[in-house]
Amino acid sequence: MKEFLEVIFRRKRLFIIPFLVIFLIPSIFSFFFLRTYEASALLWVDSDTALSRLALNQTGGGGSLPAARYLETLTQLLESRTFIERVVNKTDLKGKVKTARELSKIKARLKAFSVGPNTIKVVYYGRNPVLAKQIVQATTEEFVDWNLEFIQKENAATISFFESQLELSKKKWEESRKALQKFKEKHPETELLEERKLTLSPIKTGATPQVKLEFDRLQKEYEYTSKMLESAIDDLAQAKVTAEVKLYKQKRLFRIIDPPRVPATFSRKKLLLPIAVSFFLALAFSLGLVTFVEWMDQSIKTEEEASKTLDIPVLASIPKISGE
């Protein structure tokens, strides 16, 4: 350690000058030319609604915190090229970002993380403060819209299913009604059968047992399809109401509690990385240079060195006196 320090102090100029050059030039350049602005928005995810719980179950999250689950969704969305394109199209960059590389750059600067059980923070680091704000705003809006669209599509699919069920029920009911009508026309005596059923009087109908049996079957089928039709109508109505409620609640699931603003000052956090990198590079280079020069220098500097390398004894080691 002492020997190492001795070398560093002896070669202090050789150490300090390259160190300062390598450390200061990139640091000053970063400070003046690589200023990064940070724009952010804070999004509140409501956890009280039944819908949010439903949404959690849909994404397979079970009992996890709402922000965490939606953060996962948002993080996955941020990896999507389409989503980023939609975000970009909402900003001044619309039509300007053409290559995948440019999109990747935006993707890399856009981050989302949870800051609490119900809050998601969306952050963008960019050289242009206005654009940074626009991108964060567009991202939060797109995310909310995406969730809304998701529910709308889901609702549409549910309603469409119940509508198809209703159509099927209607068709079956119509078929059974027609079959019964046709049978009644063919066998007028069935009218007396119906009357006897209603009055419970012992009227002689003159209908054969086969006619009676077929009439009963057709009548039961008609009653069954009628009930099915009523049920399908009810289900559809209920689905429509549920969809309306889901949509209403989804619209209230997210709230932007901190809307993005145009950052007034640049982010100091982002300057740390180039400064730290240049510091370590400068340190490594300067130490390397000192080591190399020391290795190249064949001169004898200390008594220990002289004793080791020369085969003649060192009788005295006269210290240098300043001004000598």
């Binding site: 102090f9 002896r10 008594e303 002289a306 210290p319 240098k320």
Partner: peptide, 10 residues
């Protein structure tokens, strides 16, 4: 022997 001259401690 050798006299090591102007030895400096940095």
């Amino acid at each position: 022997g050798v006299v090591l001259n102007e030895v400096e401690s940095y």
